[in-house]
Design a protein around this nucleic acid. Structure first.
Lengths: 138, 138
DNA sequence: GGAGAAATGATAATCAATTCTCACATTATT
DNA sequence: AATAATGTGAGAATTGATTATCATTTCTCC
C-alpha cells in the first residue's frame, strides 16, 4: 500500500518572500492614518500581497516592543497602530467608512481643563464626521 | 399531618425591588463620569445592591434607545455610557485606575484642523494622566 | 385574587479580536 | 551541504464583551 501525499507546494510565492513583517510594516508606514490589524491585513490582501493575519499581528506586536510603532486607542473601538516617528498629531474618524486620518496641528487651552490634583501626561483629540470621499459619494 | 414549606423567601429583597433598571440608571446618573456596563455593575454590587449584569446591559441598552443615555466610545477600549442631559464636556482618563472623569469646558481651534472636503460633525477630547486619588496613592 | 405582560438573574450562546499551535519554509551559521 | 534558529500561514483555542434564553418572580390591570 502506498500513501500519496501531495500537500500543496503550490503556495510557495517566492516573489513576496523576503520578510513578510517588513512588508507589513512598510504598508503601515505608507498609510494616511493609524490602522487596525485587520485593516492593515485587508489592505495587504487587497493589493495582492499574500500574508497571514497572524503575521500582521506579529509584526505589530514586535513593532511596539521595539519602539517603532505605537498603539492608538480611542478611535472608535479596537486598537490601531501607527509609526512612532510621526510628529504630534490627531485624527479624524469618518463615521461612514470608519477610516482614521491623520491631521496636522493641535489645539489650545487643554491645561485649563485639568482638574485640581490631576496630572496630565497626554491628550487625544478626535474629530468626527465624514471624510472627503464619503461626503462626495453621498 | 402538617407540611412545612420553608422555601427560601429569603431572597425577596423587598428593599431593592422597585425596578432594578431604575437603580441602575440612578447609579449611572450619580457617577462622576461615563461608566461601562461592568464598571456600573461592580459599583452596584459593591454598594450592596444586588443586580444581574444582564439587567445592567438591558438598562443601558434601553436608555440609549429611549434617548436618555449616550454611549461614549474613545475612552480606552470598551464602551461607556453617560446621561445625555449633561452639557457638552470632555473626559480625563486615568491611566492607573482606568476611570473616566467628566471635565468642564472645551477647547479652541478645532475647525482649523479639518482637512479640505471633510465635514466635521463632532469632536472628542480626552486628557490622559493620573487622577487625584491615584497620584496621591503613589 | 387572577391572568397575562414585563422584568429579573443565572448562565449559555455568540461574536470579534487576539493569541497559540504546529508543520513547513527560509535564513543564518558553520 | 548540515544544522540550528527564526519566520510563516492556516486554523484552532482563548478571551472578553455582549446578547439570547429560560425559568421565576414581579407588575399591571381588571
Amino acid at each position: 500500500m502506498r500513501i500519496d501525499y501531495h500537500f500543496s507546494m503550490q503556495r510557495t510565492n517566492q516573489q513576496q518572500r523576503a520578510n513578510q513583517q517588513q512588508t507589513v510594516l512598510r504598508a503601515l508606514g505608507e498609510a494616511d492614518g493609524p490602522l487596525s490589524a485587520r485593516e492593515l491585513w485587508s489592505r495587504l490582501i487587497g493589493s495582492g500581497k499574500s500574508v497571514g493575519l497572524a503575521t500582521v499581528y506579529r509584526a505589530l506586536q514586535r513593532g511596539v516592543e521595539e519602539g517603532t510603532l505605537e498603539s492608538v486607542e480611542g478611535l472608535g473601538r479596537g486598537v490601531r497602530y501607527e509609526p512612532k516617528d510621526r510628529e504630534h498629531h490627531h485624527h479624524f474618524l469618518c463615521s461612514t467608512c470608519d477610516h482614521a486620518f491623520d491631521l496636522f496641528g493641535c489645539v489650545e487651552g487643554l491645561d485649563s481643563l485639568v482638574p485640581d490634583g490631576f496630572q496630565m501626561t497626554g491628550h487625544e483629540v478626535v474629530l468626527l464626521g465624514t471624510c472627503d470621499a464619503c461626503g462626495n459619494a453621498a
